[in-house]
Amino acid sequence: MSNEAPDLASLRSELTGPSENISEDIKTILTSIRQISPTIVEIKQGNADILRRLASIEMHLSDLDGQLAAAEMKIESLTSDVVDLRNRLDDQENKAWRNNVRILGFPEGVEQGNPTRFLGETLPTLLKLPEGTELSMEWAHRSLATRPAPGQRPHPFIVKLLHFSMKELLLKSVRELGILDWEGHRILFFPDLSKALQDRRRLFLPVKKILREKKVKYGLFYPATLQITYRGETTAFGTAEK
């Protein structure tokens, strides 16, 4: 009997000891949970606040996207209007210069202060115009710029003729005569066009060179239309790419 008592006591100790430890562990865990709970609540509240802010930011970004799209459409519309107005202004400018001719090559000062008289006397002979041809110039002057230094290219004459037909006659005579020489100076004639239109027409130069080499008949018409006649068929092109 004496030997059994300690064994029972030991067994009770083994059975009751862990339970007490588990209870203490559970109490510790519950205490920790109670301490953590307020923090979890704060985190949830913080997350909810962040979500509200994100939703507000998304709405704001959506509004900004709409405003940006509207602004881009407005810019495209304004750009189109500016291009249209620029083209109209350029067209009006060139129509106002429709009867003008630009003449390059005459040395500075040969007009002796009277370009209209000088050109009226010189051009008929230079261009071999029919005797008695009246140029009917409204005015003539050098281009407005600082007088060039000796050795530099002289300023061109700009001539406004009263009749478009006279301008066409002068340019036709130039084409037929080819190279024009006046007292050792090469004289060139061009329509008086705006820089924008000159740039558009200049794009046709490589094409015109090829057409001349192949002896294909062509003509460049106002404002910038290349008309080609090949094998009896005439085709017009508005751009050099075409």
Rank of each mutant, 00 (worst) to 15 (best):
M1I: 05
S2H: 11
S2C: 02
P6Y: 15
L8M: 09
A9T: 12
A9H: 11
S13R: 15
L15M: 05
T16E: 04
P18Y: 05
P18E: 08
S19Y: 02
E24K: 06
D25T: 00
D25Y: 01
T31S: 07
S37D: 14
P38R: 06
I40H: 09
Q45W: 05
G46L: 04
A48Q: 15
D49C: 09
D49Q: 14
D49S: 15
S56R: 13
S56Y: 07
S56L: 04
I57P: 00
E58Y: 04
M59Y: 01
S62K: 06
S62Y: 05
D63G: 14
G66Q: 07
Q67P: 00
Q67T: 07
Q67S: 13
L68N: 04
A69C: 06
A69N: 09
A70T: 12
M73G: 15
M73V: 11
K74W: 09
K74C: 12
I75G: 05
I75K: 13
S80V: 02
D81L: 15
L85M: 09
R86V: 11
R86W: 09
N87Q: 13
R88K: 15
D90Y: 09
D90T: 14
D91W: 13
E93Q: 11
E93W: 06
R98K: 09
V101I: 15
I103D: 10
L104P: 00
F106H: 01
F106N: 01
G109V: 00
G109F: 01
V110I: 13
V110A: 03
G113K: 02
P115G: 04
F118M: 00
L129A: 06
T133H: 12
T133K: 10
T133D: 12
E134K: 15
M137Q: 05
E138D: 10
A140F: 11
R142C: 05
A145Q: 11
T146A: 10
G151L: 07
G151V: 07
F157R: 05
F157T: 02
K160Y: 11
L161Y: 12
L162I: 06
F164C: 01
F164K: 05
S165P: 01
K167M: 11
E168I: 09
L169I: 10
L170C: 09
S173T: 07
S173Y: 00
V174D: 01
R175F: 08
L177M: 05
G178N: 03
I179Q: 10
W182R: 03
W182A: 12
G184L: 04
G184N: 02
R186H: 05
F190M: 08
S194R: 03
K195V: 15
R202M: 06
R202T: 07
F204W: 02
V207C: 08
V207I: 14
K208W: 02
E213T: 04
E213D: 14
E213K: 03
K214T: 10
K214Y: 09
K214G: 06
Y218W: 14
F221C: 08
L226G: 07
Q227A: 08
I228N: 02
I228V: 15
T229L: 13
T229A: 12
T229S: 14
Y230K: 14
R231Q: 14
G232D: 11
E233Q: 15
E233H: 13
T235H: 13
E241W: 02
